[in-house]
Computed example of a mutant assay.
Amino acid sequence: MTLSVQRAPAQAGQAIAMDIGGTWFRSARVGADGGLSDRRSAPALSARNHPEKTAADLRAALFSYLVAEARHHADRAPGIGAVGVSMGAAMHHRTGVIWNSGPLWGACSDPFDLGSALRQRAPEFDWHVTNDVSAALLALVTGDGHPVVSDTCYITVSTGIAARIWSARAGGIVIDDIAGLQGEIGHLPVTATFRGRVLPLTCDCGGAHHLNAVSSGRGMEAVLEHVRETHPGIAHGLGLAQGGDHITAFGTALDRDAHFAHDILSTCLRPLAQVVLTMIAANPAIARIHFGGGVLDGLGPERWRDALIGELETYGAYQISERHPAFFNELVRIVDGGDLGLLGAAQIATRGAPVFLSAGGAI
């Protein structure tokens, strides 16, 4: 039930787009028809890949990468001046100031105005920096060209976790008036247990017991490493080895129905299911929640979806799922989100209509 995404409609003009994630940096040129050309990728310049570098060093390296990629694409397609950057970071959607990116810079929370710095360094481009999940949601809701008639949510489960909701009534993404955020669910406090004990896990941002620390790709790796250290017998059965690729080994263990494999998957997904239940209880206008990201790709989208729905059904949506047994099956959708960040970044860079709204209206 993985959905393919139609290319963005022609309301978005030609643009250079970049998608900055915790695992990969990607760039491409996006045509007015939404077609992607000259795709390029490089390993993320992140704290994990470069532990010897400071956050300031990594930000400087990102800055240089973005300018170099923009100039690469502009040299091959003269006349394209709009550049959209989809950032895997918590940021103020109005000012563009980045607050934090645990996957990229660890616990550093020094505000970083990337957009202003880029406009000063490379003024030949019209720079637009936005959050990657917001960009993905924009591409998702505009992909088929039909009007959005109900609230739509996109949740990425990759290096980190975040959600974004498109308000059908407001016609955009509503953000708070203080930090300009919405849907940073990866930093909500949760409790995760395995074999009766609370897992002592820490988010990349430095916070204890965040959802990111158990349900994201990094979180699942941390859970598996904890199992390897504290339950050697279980770890042996799962094929976990010191210094090994835990996620690949875990996927193989799930394939062969290894003992405890599905229990660990439940441990990782249970807190996410609880957060989803809170979201739909607080906002019954959400008709669909689309999930995408590297964790789903790595473990198998349908297997991941089935496991999440299993956790949701265990708890149930009060007075809803018991009256409509197909509720969660209709609510949860899997989408191939590979290009959503690039497509959404291009739209942010070229569309005229506002996307982000506050209680006071468009901003």
Rank of each mutant, 00 (worst) to 15 (best):
D75E: 15
G96D: 01
H92K: 11
V83N: 02
T54Q: 13
A82H: 04
R48N: 10
A90V: 14
S101K: 08
H72A: 09
S86F: 03
H50M: 15
G84D: 06
A90G: 09
L66T: 00
A68Y: 02
H93S: 12
P43N: 13
L66E: 01
H93E: 00
S86Y: 04
F63C: 04
A44Y: 02
R71T: 08
A44T: 12
F63N: 04
A56V: 07
R94E: 00
A89I: 12
P51L: 09
F63A: 05
L66C: 06
V97W: 01
T95N: 11
A55V: 07
G79F: 05
P78S: 04
P43T: 03
V83E: 01
A61Q: 13
G88K: 04
P78T: 02
H72N: 13
E69R: 02
A90C: 12
L58C: 07
S64K: 08
R71K: 11
W99N: 12
H50K: 14
G84W: 03
M87D: 02
I80N: 02
A68T: 11
M87N: 03
A90T: 13
K53I: 05
L58M: 08
M87P: 01
G81M: 13
H92E: 08
L62D: 01
H92Y: 00
E69F: 00
I98H: 02
A56D: 12
D57T: 05
Y65E: 06
A56M: 07
A55Y: 15
K53G: 12
S64Y: 06
A89C: 10
T95S: 15
S86T: 06
H72Q: 11
G102M: 02
I80C: 07
R59N: 05
E52K: 15
R59S: 01
S86E: 00
G96A: 10
G81A: 15
A47L: 08
M91Q: 10
A70W: 00
V97E: 05
N49A: 14
I80A: 06
G88E: 01
I98V: 15
V83M: 02
W99G: 11
H50N: 13
H72Y: 14
G84M: 04
E52F: 12
Y65L: 02
T54C: 11
R76F: 13
A90N: 08
